[in-house]
Design a protein around this nucleic acid. Structure first.
Length: 915
RNA sequence: GCCGAUGUGGUGAAAUGGUAAACACAGCGGACUUAAAAUCCGCUGGGCGGAAACGCCCUUGCCGGUUCGAGUCCGGCCAUCGGCACCA
């Protein structure tokens, strides 16, 4: 028997047919403002998928999960009168493309084109309602021209005192009024400007990955290895382009509040940005040289300035620049050895060896500003140059790391906080003593919030955690004027004291670093920058797009020298100027692609103003209405894109401060064995195979029926067969087969009104599916459609009009089948059939009256336990229902003759008799 | 270690604080068929009692609490998965 005959319905014939018709008539084209068929009175709905990287492996079943969800939403919104923007494109630059090209020897452009063609074919075979006229490809010169253009905006902007981006010309103008401007050299003026650009060069330590032959961003490192390829990472100083994302750290945290995103993703971003409040504290250190006594002020960042009295030593990062000066002659060799050892270690080794603390004494001492004690200065690799000031005050009594270090090197430990453990119970006299001490410091009113008194046992429980910073909150002891103060009060007081004495300042610190934005690769956007006399400048916008050179050999050089250096002609911008050789990272193109979709063919502007205002600014609060993608981008793409968007917003190019209003993460699809899908495990499911065997509609439906969208869930071919059978049942509501295997319109299908029971099933389905689609609860919507189909299957005569209505509800999920059956019905019942494309139809309204039954089943409980049921008229009053319940013999039996204490009546649901 | 998510039948899962397990998968039985596949109909959490109809008890990771009533709310534990990880 051929596989063709085994098919339960001829999806392999009608699916490609409808895909062709949709494409030919541009059924899913989204008109833009200004187009003849644009209807400005309609609200907009912008539904976005994270565009894929077109890999050589083609689509896997994880892709259609999110894409089907957005497709259903998009189709549903369209039927509900929205102008729907649902586009697709390609994130085609980047390391994987280039690695693959290097392996196969084919030019990245060739492989990319082939992969894009393959992906396109695969996506089209799934019947997604994309407006393909808006397709974007980050490697297209018409696209990356504007990626480069946005880079120029970053290059030519700075963040002003208002915390917003402004054109750099404003800074240049302002500078003229600054004191001493006239005396500055051109060089100085230029440097002052360059130091404030949002895109700047830096010679700091970067993450160099020899295996990839390029530097990578902090966000691209996983466990000390590169995210792509898993190669070791080294820290080394290199001249690189950076983007000043740290200037946006606070706004990137604050603006999360108003976004409709999963709380866990917001938290992930907040933790990555890593805001912590504390203080800078200054420690003086002095040393003698042949020129006399020298001094230097070491500044540390601490979140616990209240423990300053307990600071018994200091630790500097091994890379700290002042070391060469303060280290004593006796210790010089030890310090140099240690620095050398650290430098040769990769980040991975440093993390792996982190269990045991190491460090070296510098021989130098600093003065603790609060008690003038001389404390030794050490260096250790547990202090990082890149965070805070690269120096800490060590409080071993209250910091686990400092404690370990102090134990190992026999450094003094001094307790300065008496800990109030929330779990510790305090005896009455201790409570009184603490209360007494606190009262003296704070006055009577200050205590109540700080303690919990358990009402049952009258015992006192200690302080609440504050901010979740360090858990060792408590009461200051051995701390002079801070004694007796609870931690949060002590922090305030010491900070005020430091500020008054000019010894420190309250401050906020972030973990987030500036974004390392250049890569030593071929397959990326070249920078629109040239160098002359060691100085950079941008090329004019008129020279965009700046095309990469045509290179035969685009392999990495094996050194930090980028491969573009091989294009000797291209490199030479003029007789004296050379082009920037680095390229942008893959993230560049994905930072703004959603904007390009709004106006993908615009050659005058990165996005037309009217188009941007309508699709991004329209609605409340604007932006992309729904963004669906995987969690893996929680801190990379989603943070970078928000940053770029805010810069564009500040500069007046976009209308909303945030790009993505609502974000939903689809859960990972695991293999049939419950493991992550991977080639090596051999558990990868290829969507092409599923489409061939069961059809696109079955694949779409199964992906949505598996379980909640956000959830991680394993694949099951049996499950695909289940929804396939469901679709076949729908097919047979309308079609029947003769002995030759030919399908024709079912004779049971007639122009008759649906009976009451079928009408109810249909309207319940309209209602529930509409509500569930809004909630993205597709699995429950599908089960409701199954219930409805089962009801229709049980009926001898199939009411055609009702079935057409059902097809409208089904159409966002299984568009091919719905379209085909509607067309089949039209042949015999032209008046009953829906429009040629169901997506042009209006989503049906449900009739509330059709949902109401004459009778409902009421549950009778005695003391909360189910004892009896009865059908009562819907109109029955509470009193009537109660009487029926109390009259029930079973209820009486379980009441055991006891008097009724209370009766709870929930109309339409239950009666609970309490005795 | 810190942060977050999730724990419900044999499986995927469903349940505005109100009949736990809808809808599927798998399994079992039946109809159709020479037979099988497909299709259609029925049963399907566990225990106890009963010939049966049916009835009772238990059951949403574990322990407690709030409530007339808890899978759902609160407190505490345990397990699995994900993220961060010397961030001072």
């Amino acid at each position: 028997m051929s596989s063709e005959q085994r098919k339960a319905f001829p999806f392999s014939e009608f699916e490609p047919k409808w895909q062709g018709e949709w494409e030919a008539s541009k059924a899913y084209r989204a008109p833009n403002p200004g187009d003849a068929d644009f209807d400005a009175s309609k609200p907009k709905y912008f539904v976005l998928d994270m565009f894929p990287y077109p890999s050589g492996n083609g689509l896997h079943v994880g892709h259609p999960e999110g894409y089907t969800a957005t497709d259903i939403i998009g189709r549903f919104k369209k039927m509900n009168g929205f102008n729907v923007l649902h586009p697709m494109g390609w994130d085609a630059f980047g390391l994987p493309a280039e690695q693959y090209a290097i392996k196969t020897g084919t030019h990245p452009r060739v492989t990319t084109e082939a992969n894009v063609a393959n992906f396109t074919k695969q996506l089209k075979s799934l019947g997604f309602a994309y407006d393909w006229d808006r397709e974007v490809n980050t490697t297209d010169p018409g696209y990356f021209k504007w990626t480069q253009w946005i880079f120029l905006k970053l290059y030519n902007s700075y963040v002003g005192d208002d915390g917003k981006a402004h054109p750099i010309s404003e800074l240049k103008e302002k500078m003229k009024s600054w004191l001493g401007y006239d005396q500055w050299s051109e060089e100085t003026r230029r440097k002052l400007v360059d130091d404030r650009r949002l895109a700047y060069t830096s010679n700091a330590l970067v993450n160099w990955c020899p295996g990839l032959g390029t530097v990578v961003a902090n966000e691209e490192i996983v466990d000390g290895k590169s995210e792509v390829g898993g190669f070791p990472i080294e820290r080394r100083p290199m001249l690189q382009w950076m983007l000043r994302i740290t200037k946006y750290a606070q706004r990137l945290i604050d603006d999360l509040d108003d976004l409709d995103w999963p709380e866990s993703i917001k938290l992930l971003q907040k933790n990555w940005i890593g805001r912590s409040e504390g203080a800078h504290v200054q420690f003086e250190t002095e040393w003698s040289t042949s020129d006399g006594l020298m001094s230097y002020t070491l500044t540390v960042f601490t979140t616990r300035p209240d423990t300053l009295f307990g600071a018994t030593y200091m630790v500097l990062a091994p890379e700290h620049p002042v070391l060469s000066q303060i280290t004593t002659t006796e210790q010089r060799e030890a310090v140099l050895d240690y620095q050398k050892a650290i430098a040769s270690k990769s980040d991975l080794e440093r993390t792996e060896l982190a269990k045991e603390k190491t460090g070296v004494f510098t021989g130098a001492y600093a003065t603790n500003p609060v008690n003038n004690e001389q404390i030794p200065i050490w260096i250790a690799d547990y202090v990082l140059m890149g965070y805070g000031t690269g120096a800490i005050m060590a409080v071993p009594a209250h910091d686990e790391r400092d404690f370990e270090f102090a134990k190992k090197f026999n450094l003094p430990i001094k307790q300065v906080v008496m800990r109030l453990d929330p779990k510790t119970q305090w005896s009455e006299d201790v409570r009184l003593a603490v209360n007494d001490a606190l009262s003296k410091q704070l006055g009577e009113g200050g205590l109540l919030e700080d303690f919990h008194v358990n009402e049952e046992n009258s015992k006192v429980y200690g302080f609440q955690m504050l901010d979740g910073a360090m858990s060792e909150s408590g009461i200051a002891v051995n701390s002079g004027f801070l004694d007796g103060l609870p931690t949060f009060e002590a922090k305030k007081k010491i900070t005020a004291w430091l500020e008054e004495k000019g010894l420190g300042k309250g401050t906020t610190n972030f973990k987030l670093r500036d974004w390392l934005f250049s890569r030593q690769r071929y397959w990326g956007e070249p920078f629109p920058i040239v160098w002359e006399n060691g100085q950079h400048r941008c090329i004019p916008e008129s020279e965009l797009p700046l095309m990469p050179p045509t290179l035969e050999d685009f392999k990495p050089t094996g050194t930090p020298e980028p491969p573009l250096s091989k294009a000797t002609e291209w490199v030479q911008y003029s007789a004296t100027a050379k082009r920037e050789l680095n390229t942008m990272p893959q993230w560049a193109g994905s930072c703004w692609y959603y904007l390009r979709y709004c106006d993908a063919r615009n050659s005058e502007r990165f996005v037309g103003e009217a188009a941007e205002k309508y699709w991004m600014g329209g609605g409340k609060p604007g932006g992309v209405d729904l963004y669906v993608g995987g969690t893996e981008h929680a801190v990379l793409h989603l943070l970078y894109a928000r940053f770029w968007h805010k810069v564009l917003f500040d500069l007046g190019y976009v209308s909303t401060p945030e790009p993505f209003q609502r974000l939903v993460n689809q859960g990972l699809i695991l293999g049939e064995d419950g493991q992550k899908m991977s080639k090596s495990r051999g558990n990868v499911v290829n969507p092409d195979d599923v489409v061939r065997e069961y059809g696109a509609d079955a694949l779409r439906l199964y992906e949505m029926f598996m379980g909640p969208l956000e959830q991680v869930k394993p694949w099951s071919m049996k499950g695909v067969e289940g929804v396939y059978r469901f679709l076949a049942r729908v097919w047979r509501l309308v079609m029947e087969v003769d002995e030759e295997g030919t399908w024709s319109l079912s004779k049971a299908l007639q122009d008759v009104p649906a009976n009451k029971q079928l009408t109810k099933a249909l309207h319940e389905t309209i209602k529930k599916c509409g509500e569930d689609i809004e909630k993205l609860s597709f699995n429950t919507a599908i089960s409701q459609m199954m219930v409805c189909t089962n009801a229709f299957t049980g009926a001898d005569v199939k009411p055609a009009a009702a079935i057409v209505t059902f097809l409208k509800v089904l159409s966002p999920f299984a568009p091919h089948l719905a379209e085909e059956l509607n067309a089949q019905i039209r042949v015999k019942f032209p008046a009953l059939a829906a429009k040629r494309f169901l997506s042009d139809e209006t989503w049906p309204a449900y009739d509330p009256a059709a949902l109401i039954e004459d009778e409902v089943e009421i549950v009778f409980q005695v003391n909360g336990k189910l004892r009896d049921k009865a059908r009562v008229p819907v109109a029955a009053t509470k009193e009537e229902i109660e009487q029926i319940a109390l009259a029930s013999p079973r209820v009486q039996e379980f009441m055991e003759g006891k008097p009724v204490k209370k009766v709870i009546v929930v109309p339409g649901k239950l009666v609970n008799v309490v005795v």
